[in-house]
């Protein structure tokens, strides 16, 4: 009985300490030190939130660089998250990927046997992957330039500007943030030098 009372007391005390005090302290520290990140690294145009700098968005138009396939019910709807969980020997999955490969080739004017970057046809783990590989961006340059009627080299330069390199040369992979790239693309296209939200300079 004595131990039961203690169990309850300890649990209550621990709950207050780790369930209330601890998250509040961390929230306070976060607010003081990194207010933008703590809120979700949101990107704004004026008062409108246009997304998070680190969460992918759905791009289906030919005018935009497309991100990776998302396995979330509503593609890239960040109210949820997750992957496809298809196993590597799942016939349905392999068939679907085959179809996506065809689509990528067709959309980007590639040859029928051209190799396609894996990330562009394979779903990410979170369904919210903000990045694509450099190769995946490169094969879309022609299509995007054509759809927007801007010179291909301009788009190519933009792509190269948005390559994020591995930290210290080995932490992480070479990658491109699709939302940021497309934002920059819109800025060029409209010739309006809307500046990006503060803190969203290219990394």
């Amino acid at each position: 009985m004595k131990e039961l009372v203690r169990s309850l007391l300890v649990l209550i005390a621990m709950s207050l300490l780790t369930g209330a005090l601890y998250p509040l302290v961390v929230t306070g520290l976060a607010k003081a030190g990194f207010p933008r990140q703590a809120q979700g690294s949101l990107l704004m145009t004026g008062d409108t939130i246009i997304g998070s700098a680190i969460v992918g968005q759905n791009f289906s138009s030919l005018r935009y660089f497309r991100g990776r396939p998302s396995a979330i019910e509503k593609s890239y709807d960040a109210g949820n998250s997750g992957g496809s969980n298809f196993g590597p020997s799942n016939a349905k999955f392999l068939e679907e990927v085959g179809g996506r490969v065809e689509t990528v080739r067709k959309d980007n004017g590639l040859e029928r046997t051209a190799s396609v970057p894996a990330d562009l046809v394979l779903a990410s783990a979170s369904g919210l992957d903000p990045h694509i590989s450099v190769e995946a961006a490169t094969i879309q340059v022609k299509r995007v330039a054509k759809a927007r009627g801007v010179p291909e080299p301009d788009v190519q330069v933009l792509v190269e500007r948005f390559i994020e390199m591995p930290l210290f040369g080995f932490l992480g992979e070479k990658r491109i943030n699709v939302l940021r790239l497309n934002l920059a693309l819109d800025n060029i296209a409209s010739q309006v030098n809307q500046s990006l939200t503060k803190g969203d300079e290219k990394r």
């Binding site: 992957g83 298809f86 392999l94 046997t113 394979l122 990410s124 783990a125 992957d129 990045h131 694509i132």
Partner: peptide, 18 residues
């Protein structure tokens, strides 16, 4: 996947680019 035209079949399914 390699046969389907994905380079060397790199298994990026369920992985994040970063």
């Amino acid at each position: 996947l390699a046969q389907s035209g994905l380079g060397n079949g790199t298994n990026m399914e369920g992985k994040e680019i970063r």
